[in-house]
Simulated scan of single mutants.
Amino acid sequence: MKPVSNLAGRLLLLSTLVLGPALPALAFNLDSNEPIRVTADSARLDDNQGIAIYRGNVEVRQGGILLTADRVDVHRNAQGLDRIDARGQPATYSRPATETEGPVDAKALLIHYSAPDNLLRFEREAVVKQGGDEFRGAVINYNTANRVVTGEGRTAEGEGSGRVEMVIQPRGNNSGNNN
Rank of each mutant, 00 (worst) to 15 (best):
Q130N: 06
D47P: 10
S42T: 06
A97Y: 00
Y113D: 02
A97P: 11
E157C: 07
I168T: 09
V72W: 00
N174P: 07
Y93G: 03
G137A: 12
D133M: 02
N141Y: 09
Y142G: 07
V72P: 06
E101V: 01
L67A: 03
D31I: 03
N6A: 15
L110T: 11
K129G: 10
T144Q: 03
G131H: 08
D47N: 04
L17D: 14
S32E: 05
T39S: 13
E125L: 11
Q130H: 01
G9S: 13
L66W: 01
R61I: 00
Y113M: 08
A25L: 02
L67Q: 01
D117R: 01
S42Q: 11
A97L: 01
A43C: 00
L109H: 07
G162V: 05
R10I: 07
V58N: 02
N174D: 15
M1W: 08
G80R: 00
N118V: 07
M166L: 13
E123G: 14
E125C: 06
L14W: 13
T16W: 07
R136I: 12
F28T: 08
S94E: 13
S94A: 10
D133K: 00
R71E: 14
L110E: 08
S32G: 00
K107P: 10
G132V: 11
G50C: 01
D70M: 05
Q89K: 12
R163P: 05
G158N: 15
S32Y: 01
L19F: 11
K2R: 15
I53K: 06
N178S: 09
Q79G: 04
D105T: 08
T16G: 12
L19P: 14
E152Y: 14
A27G: 07
R87S: 08
Q169H: 12
A40Y: 04
L109R: 14
G172I: 05
H112N: 11
M1E: 07
R10D: 15
R147M: 01
R37L: 05
R10L: 13
K107N: 12
I51V: 14
R154Q: 14
D82H: 02
V72K: 00
R44K: 04
L13M: 10
T98C: 06
E157H: 07
L109K: 12
I36D: 00
A52G: 10
A8D: 15
K129V: 15
N48G: 07
F122C: 14
V104W: 04
L12D: 10
V58D: 02
I53G: 01
I53E: 13
N141W: 11
P35L: 03
A86E: 05
V167A: 09
T98K: 00
A43I: 03
L26K: 09
S5A: 15
G158L: 12
E159A: 13
S114F: 04
A8P: 08
E99D: 04
Y93C: 03
Y54Q: 04
K129S: 15
E134A: 13
N118K: 03
L109Y: 06
P21E: 10
I51W: 03
S114Y: 00
L23K: 04
T68R: 12
L110F: 15
V72E: 00
A108P: 07
G131D: 02
